[in-house]
């Protein structure tokens, strides 16, 4: 799964620390999320999407080969 967190955060001119504070996680977690090392839980994904005022699927994108439940 890839995400657009870095792109959306930069578009809003936020630092990683500011964004981390907004979604109530540590800066290291934001770094891991942006690098794709860590996949957010449904709750965190929802919180991030709500912060950007976008649907979850516009922030977190399933890659080909990943099982998608219809």
């Amino acid at each position: 799964m890839i995400n657009r967190i870095q792109e959306l955060r930069k578009a809003r001119k936020l630092t990683q620390a500011e964004f981390a504070s907004e979604i109530e996680v540590t800066r290291q977690t934001v770094i891991s999320l942006e690098k794709g090392k860590y996949n957010a839980s449904l709750l965190l994904a929802h919180r991030i999407a709500a912060f950007f005022e976008l649907p979850i699927e516009d922030v977190f994108i399933f890659e080909k080969g990943e099982k998608k439940i219809d």
Binding site: A20, S21, E24, V25, T26, Q28, T29, S32, Y38, A40, S41, L43, L44
Partner: peptide
């Protein structure tokens, strides 16, 4: 401290 304690990755 709450942020550190509730951070799911940590």
């Amino acid at each position: 401290n709450k942020i550190k304690a509730t951070d799911e990755r940590l």
